[in-house]
């Protein structure tokens, strides 16, 4: 077990409990609950096993759904993000360049930000679509996606700044 696995396991546990205990009850401006467990998809190293990531993302979403008694929305959104992550990485860090080993080993700020935005917006879109699950609520879904994404992103960037840039 190396350092990165340890980080992954620790962040997994911390993020599950952090999301359930803290962030689900934050209610910024009355209704916005930022979703922070997406940090797991950033800590998980880019070169690591993809199959394991799918299983872990399912488990992550399932635990959060289970503990916060929401429907299956977290599970489906998190699972989909776990499945789509290689695509998002390739899209945001460049197809032709050699891919970085992890999020922290890359130094291009714009690409990293783009990666974060893509991850968050796709996740939130799926999440809110499943929460409302009706074609009549498109406006509500869009509104919620935009504002919650904004707050999630801000909190994620703040959290990520506490981590050292390990190569």
């Amino acid at each position: 077990m190396n350092f990165f696995s340890l980080i992954s396991i620790l962040s997994f546990i911390t993020l599950v409990f952090g999301q359930v205990v803290l962030f689900n009850h934050l209610q910024v401006f009355g209704s916005i609950n930022p979703i922070l467990y997406l940090l797991f998809f950033i800590f998980y190293r880019f070169e690591s096993n993809q199959t394991l990531l799918i299983l872990l993302s399912f488990l992550l979403g399932f635990l959060i759904d289970f503990l916060s008694q929401s429907g299956g929305a977290h599970t489906i959104a998190s699972l989909t993000i776990g499945f789509l992550r290689p695509l998002i990485i390739r899209y945001s860090f460049g197809n032709t360049m050699e891919l970085p080993q992890s999020y922290f080993s890359d130094s291009r700020t714009l690409n990293k930000l783009f990666f974060l935005v893509l991850l968050t917006v796709i996740h939130h879109l799926i999440y809110f679509t499943l929460i409302y699950f009706s074609l009549d609520a498109i406006l509500l879904i869009t509104k919620n996606t935009i504002f919650t994404s904004l707050f999630s992103l801000i909190l994620m960037v703040i959290t990520l700044n506490f981590y050292p840039n390990r190569k």
């Binding site: 993809q50 199959t51 799918i54 299983l55 399912f58 979403g61 399932f62 759904d65 929401s70 429907g71 299956g72 929305a73 599970t75 489906i76 699972l79 989909t80 776990g82 499945f83 499943l130 699950f133």
Partner: peptide, 24 residues
């Protein structure tokens, strides 16, 4: 294996969703 696993788990989660809420 990844797409297969993904769609299997997706189906599973949809069934959880359907079980959890009558609206869904």
């Amino acid at each position: 294996r990844n797409p297969i696993l993904y769609f299997f788990l997706l189906g599973l989660s949809f069934s959880f969703t359907a079980k959890q809420s009558t609206f869904h």
